[in-house]
Amino acid sequence: MTDYLDLRLNEDAVRSISTLGLAYLGDAVFELMVRSRLCLEGKATSGKLHKAAVSRVSAPAQAAAARRLLPLLSEEEQAVFRRGRNANVHAVPKNASREDYQTATALETLFGWLYLHGRRGRLNELFENILRDEEAGK
C-alpha cells in the first residue's frame, strides 16, 4: 500500500511529473503547513482560520515569501525553483501580477518537489524561515 502522506520517490519518478503537477501538489503541501500552523496558534473559528489562511496562501504572499527564501536555497533547489517560475501558466488570478503568480508557482513547485523526495525536514526549515520573516514584519 502506498503511504501518500510519506512519499519518497526517486529522482526519475519525480522528474516524470510535470512542473505544473509539482506546483499543484506543492500548493496543497504549503496550504496544509499554513493550516497546521494556524490551528496550533489557536485560531478558533473556521471564519478566522479561512481568512488567515487565504492571506498566507495567496500568490502575492507566496511570492514575497519565495523572494525571501531564494538566498537560502541550494543550487539544486534553485534549479527546481527556476523550473517552476518558467512554467507556462495560462491564467493569472485577478489579485496577482504575472510576476507574483510565476514566483508563487516556483515556490509551490519547490515544495512539491521536496515533498515527493521525502525531505520533510527541509520543508519545515524553509517554512519556519517564512514564519520568522512574517513575524519580524519583513
Results as ranks from 00 to 15, higher is better:
T2L: 14
Y4A: 07
N10L: 05
E11T: 10
D12T: 10
A13Q: 15
V14N: 00
R15W: 05
S16H: 06
S16G: 03
S16L: 06
I17N: 03
S18W: 05
L20C: 00
L20K: 07
L20M: 14
G21W: 04
G26M: 04
D27C: 08
A28I: 09
V29L: 07
V29N: 02
E31S: 14
L32T: 12
L32F: 11
V34E: 02
R37K: 09
R37F: 14
L38N: 03
C39Y: 10
L40Y: 03
L40W: 05
A44H: 06
T45K: 02
G47V: 10
G47R: 13
K51I: 09
A53Y: 03
R56T: 04
S58C: 06
P60I: 13
A61T: 08
A65Q: 09
A66G: 10
R67V: 02
R67Y: 07
L69K: 06
L69Q: 06
L73I: 08
L73M: 12
S74W: 04
E75Y: 01
E76A: 15
E76C: 03
Q78G: 04
Q78W: 06
V80K: 00
R82W: 14
G84E: 02
G84D: 01
A87K: 03
A87S: 14
N88M: 09
V89H: 03
A91N: 08
V92C: 12
V92W: 09
P93I: 14
N95S: 11
N95E: 15
A96P: 08
S97N: 05
R98I: 10
D100P: 00
Y101K: 00
Q102T: 11
T103R: 02
T103A: 05
A104C: 13
A104R: 07
A104W: 12
T105D: 00
A106G: 14
A106Q: 05
T109P: 05
L110D: 00
G112S: 05
G112C: 05
L116I: 08
H117M: 05
N129Q: 15
N129W: 08
N129Y: 11
D133L: 04
D133Y: 12
E134F: 13
G137P: 01
K138C: 01
